[in-house]
């Protein structure tokens, strides 16, 4: 798979088969919801915007090359309504991101993130069910 051939620190975790709400450029259209990956890297940009909030993170590959990933989320408005603690993220944080890989290289949609202190957060602020259906899906 092209995404995996990049050699980035992405780990295929599980296969999921979930239909979620969709919007803007549509999660099922842009992301492979049959798979979930985990990426760890350093936060370089935070954008709480609509229709999609996003992070940029720098990921160090096994060959020590640093590559950027774009991590998409739902609409900032939706995350605010869910009570997502946006103020807990700072450029320079080392984050682990769990989500579905994008159909563009080095992109994914965030289903869950792990903060430096070990806190797990989902965009909906609800625990994910075993199928990973907690993403707001926008």
């Amino acid at each position: 798979m092209k995404l995996m051939s990049l050699g980035v620190a992405a780990v295929l975790v599980a296969s999921v088969g979930v239909q979620r709400p969709t919007a803007h450029h549509s999660v099922p259209v842009n992301f492979d919801q049959s798979r979930e990956i985990t990426v760890t890297g350093v936060l370089t940009e935070i954008k709480w915007v609509n229709p999609h909030a996003h992070f940029r993170i720098n990921v160090t590959n096994p060959d020590s090359a640093v590559v950027e990933w774009l991590i998409e989320m739902g609409a900032a408005n939706t995350m605010r309504r869910a009570g997502f603690p946006m103020d807990r993220f700072m450029v320079g944080d080392r984050l682990t991101i769990i989500g579905n890989p994008g159909r563009r290289d080095r992109t994914m949609i965030l289903n869950e993130t792990v903060l430096p202190d070990g806190t797990h957060l989902t965009p909906t602020m609800r625990p994910r069910d075993p199928t990973g259906a907690a993403s707001s899906g926008e």
Partner: peptide, 20 residues
């Protein structure tokens, strides 16, 4: 009971779909 919120979409941000 939610009120409308400002969306504030800008093409510059909405078109961000890939890493640099």
């Amino acid at each position: 009971d939610w009120e409308l919120m400002k969306y504030g979409c800008t093409p510059e941000e909405a078109a961000v779909v890939a890493p640099r």
